[in-house]
C-alpha cells in the first residue's frame, strides 16, 4: 500500500503493508531510534508519538490510517519551540524521565500542555487537566521512573512556561 504522509515535517511516500503498526514503520523504514523497546500490545506506553497533534500509542495505529496524516516523533518534536518549555521544566525541577521512557513521557506531557492551551483559548471542550488526570495520563507509560509528585512539579513548571509563551504571542 502506498501512503503519503508527513513525518517530522518531511513529506513521504511510504510503501508498506496496510496493517503495519506505525511504531514498526518508524523503526524499520525511518530508523527512528526511540523505538528500541516494544511491548506489542500497547501496555508499555513507550511508543507515543503525536499524530495530527494528538498523542497516540504508535503501536495501535495501522498504516492505512496514516493517509495524509502528520506524525511527529520525539526527534521531530525536539526541533519545535514547544520542546523548550518541557526541557526547562525538567531542568528547573531537577526531575526528568529516564532514557528508557524520556521520549514517550515528554510527548504525553506535551499533549497535556496542549489541553491547557486549548481549554484556555476555548478551542476545545476539554477541561484543564487536574492532578489525578495528569498522573493517570503520564501513567500510560508504565516506566516507574517518575513519582506522582515529580510529574506534577514538571507539569506545573512547563505549564507556566507555556502560558508565558501564549501571553507573548497574543
Amino acid at each position: 500500500m502506498k501512503i503519503e504522509c508527513t513525518i517530522d515535517g518531511k513529506h513521504l511516500l511510504l510503501t508498506v503493508n496496510s496493517n503495519k503498526p506505525l511504531n514498526l514503520i518508524l523503526a524499520d523504514e525511518l530508523e527512528t531510534p526511540l523505538l528500541t523497546i516494544r511491548c506489542r500490545d500497547g501496555s508499555c506506553g513507550n511508543c507515543v508519538v503525536l499524530l495530527n497533534d494528538e498523542a497516540v500509542l504508535s503501536c495501535l495505529i495501522p498504516a492505512f490510517r496514516l493517509k495524509g496524516a502528520r506524525v511527529l516523533t520525539f526527534e521531530g518534536y525536539q526541533k519545535t519551540r514547544f520542546w523548550h518549555d518541557l526541557e526547562r521544566a525538567y531542568e528547573d525541577t531537577g526531575s526528568h524521565p529516564c532514557p528508557h521512557c524520556y521520549a514517550s513521557k515528554t510527548l504525553i506531557f506535551e499533549s497535556l500542555l496542549q489541553m491547557i492551551v486549548k481549554s484556555e483559548s476555548g478551542a476545545s471542550r476539554d477541561e484543564e487537566p487536574d492532578e489525578e488526570t495528569i498522573v493517570r495520563e503520564i501513567g500510560l507509560n508504565k516506566c516507574p521512573c517518575l513519582d506522582a509528585h515529580e510529574m506534577l512539579d514538571i507539569f506545573k513548571a512547563a505549564a507556566t512556561y507555556r502560558r508565558r509563551r501564549r501571553v507573548r504571542r497574543y
Binding site: 506489542r40 500490545d41 495501535l60 495501522p62
Partner: peptide, 11 residues
Amino acid sequence: GTFIMSRHDYY
C-alpha cells in the same frame, strides 16, 4: 483498532 492491534500475533 485498539483491541485488534493489541493482540500479540497481530503483525
